[in-house]
Design a protein around this nucleic acid. Structure first.
Lengths: 203, 203
DNA sequence: CGACGAAATGGAATCGGATTCCACATAGCG
DNA sequence: CGCTATGTGGAATCCGATTCCATTTCGTCG
């Protein structure tokens, strides 16, 4: 990755004003086009929507995944903030549950992009990790609170849960109810701890 | 879908012998190439491996997903059989747990293909449903047994679980331990039932 | 304030691979 | 054995991603 504008906060070389304008337009355009056409939207459509040429797109986002990542980052930040607010406004277990709901809604909305996060191709390798790592401290704080209250076991880490929910959410918005039910089950498992595994008797 | 060779068992018009040979070669070739190059393998590579022309490939499998589906079907059948064997050899809860393990291993092995199952594109729409529907009665039998023994609630159906595990497995073989842990949690949730949801206090 | 060099830009050119087309081959049948 | 519908290979076509480069614009420094 270039690291100049996608993930990094502090560009070493101050970016030229027109370049910053292009990047912003591109991210906004990509958000709109991804929402309309899905994650496999044509590169040209994004450039058109942003009002720039394709070369400009490629200059700033050499790989498609860079663009996806950029689009997702602002949503992630909103999720992090929601965690703090919920923690302040609710008892630990409720805050945890409600935040998972919030996170789930985020992944559901962006499910097309989220699917790309764990595509098998190298194109997307490690793309999602960066997002999850940003989310991790927020969820970890919620979890620490429920653990301190004796409401959950440590059978799964914050990262574990983040991944699990992200995966559970991939089927798409039509299955929102299903997803929420599965997350509820997962949470109950976390509450009571895993079952003892059976001993294998035959191979 | 064509329905002549992919999913259907009984072709209405008896297929010509050379055509059947092509189909078999294609499926075997695709299995090999997918395993080597991943689900995005070049169409040409598959045709080459099968020793046929690309037109032949397209004639029998107009869409890529048809080929993927064909490759997966035999593995699914093995899973169904395993369910029956485990049910006969173990107590209900153990059989369920062990079978989920088996199913998880299957999805993990074919995770590249499994990822395609819930891709957002229409290309793959409904592709996985067919497989899950074949698996569903097998798991349902296992679940009925655990329910009869009072070991699980009906908080999730067989189909629910099938989907959940399939999704949980998508990260890939490297995360096998993680996946198994999450499934354990899910199972514990199923054992004890979901937690009551908190009432929403602020929007 | 007004050049000048580096960075950025747009659109045309290129490239790669999926999909389609069609003239030829062969199985299955009388 | 010959006839017809079905199946086949590979060449032709099409489509979109990626790269290239002549031109424009920014930001700075004299």
């Amino acid at each position: 990755m270039d690291g100049r504008q996608g993930g990094g906060r502090e560009p070493r070389t101050p970016m030229r004003a027109d370049a910053r304008r292009s990047v912003d337009a591109l991210v906004e355009g990509a958000r709109a086009v991804f929402a309309r056409d899905g994650v496999d939207a044509h590169v040209k459509a994004i450039a058109l929507q942003a009002g720039v040429g394709v070369a400009t797109l490629y200059r700033h986002f050499p790989r498609r995944s860079d663009l996806i990542l950029a689009v997702l980052e602002s949503d992630v930040d909103a999720c992090v903030e929601a965690a703090h607010e919920l923690a302040a406004a609710h008892p630990p277990m409720d805050a945890l549950d409600l935040w998972l709901d919030r996170y789930c809604a985020f992944v559901l909305t962006k499910h097309g992009l989220a699917a790309a996060l764990h595509s098998d191709a190298e194109t997307f390798a490690g793309l999602g990790e960066q997002l999850l790592e940003r989310l991790e401290p927020a969820l970890d704080a919620l979890l620490q609170a429920t653990r301190a209250a004796g409401m959950t076991t440590d059978a799964a880490s914050a990262m574990d849960l983040l991944r699990a929910v992200a995966h559970l959410c991939t089927p798409g918005p039509a299955h929102a109810a299903y997803t929420r039910r599965m997350i509820g089950l997962l949470l109950a498992g976390l509450r009571y701890g895993p079952l003892p595994r059976p001993r294998r008797t035959s191979p």
